[in-house]
Design a protein around this nucleic acid. Structure first.
Lengths: 226, 226
DNA sequence: CGATGACTTGAACGCCATCAATCGCTGTGG
DNA sequence: CCACAGCGATTGATGGCGTTCAAGTCATCG
């Protein structure tokens, strides 16, 4: 499932610094589609993406899937503030993660209000992300949702002006509460309008030619999804 | 807008006890539709409902309204963990609230990890509520949403077996992401099926005759909305 | 008693899900 | 090395659910 990589503490120290210079971080690698933790499983660690991408999801009783979030390099996830995870986490592509034991955080937070403050800040950021997504899912059309998604990704994983989507259309659909065909159709529509250019045949490498156009469509409900 | 009522610290002490025996709580009364605080206004207080009901909402640029939550007697709201509120809060009916100054909480939390822990717990509860609502709004039909709403309210504001809804159909619609006519139609459908009985002509006093039936419709996405 | 607001109900349209066909790329085994 | 299977994506056709527009009822209030 995963293999120990290293315990190098300063390859990408954002997590460590944000969480107060903790030692005892470990690195693991997960191959594509590997499960990182399961819904209702014990929440023993929190995670930071070093390389790759992660999706967290819930399965509904009728088989439908809800993707709660995509986690990209630098992002921290798995902080559920409970003994059990509320989502399942999987690697979207081959992924390297840094792990921190949750009980260490808990222990530190018990006596250190600064650490407690950091945990609260992270949870609040999480809450705001989810509140924004409620607006999107509750009130917006398919076109608006896809536009908002593209804007979000344009801000989060663009390198050299190119969005390199790690996830497939179905993942996006389950994130936006749409059928994957609808996502595909809206991508095509934006392409036809000249808002997007595709670089590869699978159309996951995307250049946003008209960000203002997309923003105009995504409108009100704020594109600040993280 | 509002009037000072009293500073009696032990009329409904849940907030006080949960937040660690703070003094300096005050009571205020708000009349129907009065604004308690505005979106992006300074978050100087947190609030507990003593009597009545409160809705928190956001307005979108095109006039659509999203209701984030209903707050009923005993509920605490306004804890945004930032300097500004992310929602507007209004009294749905004549309402009495207890107020606690946020800077007092902040000061206490700065040195007391237990208080910090309580704030985190409340924020996490908030987060879970919102996550459940995302499932509802992202993936469920109108029928399922209304059923889930009725189950939620049946758990939260039933007295003597009767749900006495303080909010109108439009409020419910904006909470569930539906048109108010659709809410009305689903209420009627449940009534026809024998799941509900209405006690008043405006049909806000409701007896749930078949909770299992409603639960069966609300299904998977968990009815535990608080 | 006319006006207003809350709610219900009907009719028609439109968005999006569903079902289905097709295309292109990738990888695998004969 | 090529045929074929399988996956990801696009595109088309169709139908249903929920919105929108509209009318009508009932209760409350000035």
């Amino acid at each position: 499932m995963f293999t120990i990589l290293s315990t190098d503490p300063n390859k990408k120290p954002r997590l460590v610094s944000e969480l107060g210079g903790l030692s005892h971080t470990e690195e693991f690698k997960y191959s594509k589609d590997a499960e990182i933790f399961g819904e209702a499983g014990p929440a023993d660690y929190i995670y930071q993406v070093i390389e790759g991408a992660v999706r967290t999801h819930k399965l509904l009783s009728d088989g439908r899937r809800h993707i709660g979030a995509f986690h990209l390099p630098g992002d921290i996830f798995g902080l559920d503030n409970g003994d059990f995870h509320r989502f399942t986490a999987e690697a979207i592509v081959d992924t390297a993660l840094r792990l921190v034991e949750r009980r260490i955080l808990e222990r530190v937070a018990k006596t250190d209000p600064t650490m407690a403050r950091r945990l609260l800040t992270m949870t609040t950021a999480n809450l705001q992300h989810v509140e924004n997504r409620i607006l999107l899912l509750g009130r917006n059309t398919a076109r608006e949702r896809v536009a908002a998604f593209l804007i979000e990704m344009n801000g989060r994983l663009t390198s050299a002006g190119v969005i390199a989507l790690p996830m497939n259309r179905r993942d996006i659909a389950d994130y936006l509460g749409l059928a994957f065909e609808t996502v595909s159709r809206e991508f095509s529509a934006f392409h036809r309008k000249g808002y997007l250019r595709f670089l590869d045949p699978m159309q996951r490498q995307i250049i946003v030619l008209d960000a203002a156009g997309l923003t105009g469509i995504a409108q009100q409900t704020s594109a600040k999804l993280d």
